[in-house]
Structure formats: C-alpha cells, structure tokens
Amino acid sequence: MDLLAVEGLAKSYGGVGAVRGVSFALAPGEVLALIGPNGAGKSTCFNMLNGQIRPDAGRIRLAGTDVTGMAPRRMAGLGVARSFQIAATFGSMTVRENVQAACLVHAGGMARPFGRADRRFRPEAERWLDHVGLLAQADRPAAELAYGDVKRLELAMALSGAPRLLLMDEPTAGMAPKERHGLMRATVDHARRNGIGLMFTEHDMDIVFTHADRVLVLSRGRLIAAGRPEAVREDPDVRATYLGGGLTFAAAPGRTEAVS
C-alpha cells in the first residue's frame, strides 16, 4: 500500500487555479521532489497535504485513510511532519529547548505538563541535534543561529516526532552547497532506514537530481512531468517550461555526472 495517495487535488483563488488536478503516490521510504517555477503551486500543494489549506477538490489518503481537509494538528497525530520555507523556531529558547518542546508536543506533554519541562526529553533532543549537526550549539539561543542552522533545527524538531510522512519546503535554503548535500544525505538515509515517506520542494536542481528517487514537475498548477530524475531532466516539456531549454548542475560530492 502507498503511504500517501493524492487524487485530483485542486485549489483556486479568485478563479485562478493554483493547483489543478494533481495526482501522485508516495511509498514508505521513498524520496519525492516537487519542483517548478515560482507560482507553479508547490507551496499550495504542500499546504493541502498537511492540512494548512482545504482543497476545493480531490482526495488525500494517508496509509489508506482519507485525511482530506484534516486539520494540521490531527495530521501531525497521524505521523505527518512539516518544515517550512521560512523556518519557524522559538528564538528566545535554546536550541536544545526547541527540540525538547517539540518532543513534549509529540508526547502530549504540553496538554498534561508535570515536572520541569527543561529536564524532559533532554537525551532525545540531543540525539536529534547530533543527527543534524547542531549538538555543539545546543545551549545557544535559537535567535543567534545562522539561517542555515535554523533550518537544521527545524528539521530536528520535525524528526523528533518519528513521522511516517515528512514534508520539507526548501530544506536547504540558506546553506552552503557542501552543507546542503550533507543535510539531505543524512535526512534521506534516515527516511529510507525507517520507512519514512519524504517529499520536498527545492530550487537547487543539484540537490533534486542527486537525492530524489522520483521528481514531480508543476507548471501553472498542473503536473507536467513525473518520473526518475534522469528522465525528468530530459523531458522536452520540462526543459521548455521550467529549465529554459537546458540544464547544467555542479557535481555533488562523490558524483561526477553533469548534464548540459
């Protein structure tokens, strides 16, 4: 059974179709990239998948359960985690405390607090910070982090809930190229080992073609291509609509391939 099945998803604003009849599926442990030019409908699609926006039409099924229009909190309870294009963390709290707070939410501790919150889930928080390379900064206020590190922190917070489905919106924005590949490699490896369905949007095509198992391409709200990265980057509609007639990208660490 597919982890995520999307059928005919649609959303319009003032008569303009932001997402129009999008259908796809995602298997456990699969890595799926959603790309397209600005305004293609990527964020709208993501916002419908985790309940931020209710679709006008279509169905979203998670492990066979219809979750269409379900509120984000209920989606999170079913194992859907989300990181945002503009990272959201608590700047006045330490890096560790941010992840501890996420652990408390996932465990229901915010509704039923007991004891000192800063003593709860400390080992778990540090394990996730180590996973994203932030353990050395655990005691720093989150407000002092560089933006790339804030994105790492947000990822640690999302992973702390052991999600079944992880939606990542521009996960490597603000990072140096080497850091981008390192973070994506660790995240992809974790998803595959644990059977987590991973879907992400990204403007860095090198990240997309290096780490995705499949790629979906949106243009003006419609899905114009879907398939393995090597097939999508050669698709004439993708080249004409999105990639401007050609594609080049720097080789990722350990990879020498280039396309022109």
Rank of each mutant, 00 (worst) to 15 (best):
W128A: 02
I60K: 00
G174F: 09
D213A: 10
L223A: 04
A156M: 13
Y13H: 10
R74G: 02
V208H: 08
F84P: 09
A176N: 08
K151Y: 03
L155G: 01
H211C: 12
P163S: 01
S160R: 08
M205Y: 04
M199N: 08
D169H: 11
K178I: 07
G64C: 01
F114Y: 13
C103N: 11
A146C: 10
V105M: 14
T89H: 13
Q52N: 06
A10K: 14
P141N: 09
F90Y: 15
L145R: 03
R59L: 06
A27R: 15
A186P: 06
V80P: 04
G115L: 06
S12L: 00
N38D: 09
V217C: 12
V132Y: 08
G115D: 04
L166Y: 00
S219N: 12
R119Y: 00
Q100L: 05
L26F: 02
V19P: 04
I196K: 02
A111V: 12
G39I: 01
G39H: 07
G197E: 05
A102N: 11
D66R: 07
F200N: 00
L129D: 03
C103E: 08
T187H: 03
V238P: 07
G17Y: 00
G41P: 07
Y13A: 04
P171F: 11
S23Q: 13
T256A: 12
G182T: 12
R233Q: 08
V208P: 01
Y242P: 09
V150A: 05
R120L: 14
R255G: 04
T65H: 10
E202F: 10
D204G: 08
G8Q: 15
K178P: 00
A87N: 13
G29F: 02
P236D: 04
T94N: 04
R185P: 01
N50H: 15
F84I: 10
F24Q: 14
L165F: 15
D149W: 03
I53K: 13
G182P: 00
E124W: 00
S12D: 10
E124N: 03
F121D: 03
A57C: 01
A102Q: 13
F90L: 14
P28W: 06
G21N: 14
N38E: 07
A212I: 12
A176V: 03
I196H: 13
L247D: 06
G29V: 06
L247S: 03
G36Y: 13
V208D: 10
K11T: 04
Y147S: 10
V80T: 11
F84K: 14
A117I: 10
A173D: 14
A143V: 09
T210Y: 05
R20Q: 15
F84R: 14
P55R: 09
Q100N: 06
E170S: 09
G14R: 14
V215W: 05
G246Q: 11
D139P: 00
D204P: 01
V31G: 11
P177G: 08
M1E: 11
G197D: 14
G15V: 09
T201D: 04
R239N: 05
G221P: 05
A231Q: 08
L32K: 07
R112A: 14
T256E: 13
L165W: 08
V16P: 00
T187E: 02
R222A: 15
L62P: 09
A27H: 10
G69K: 11
G246T: 13
A107W: 07
G77M: 03
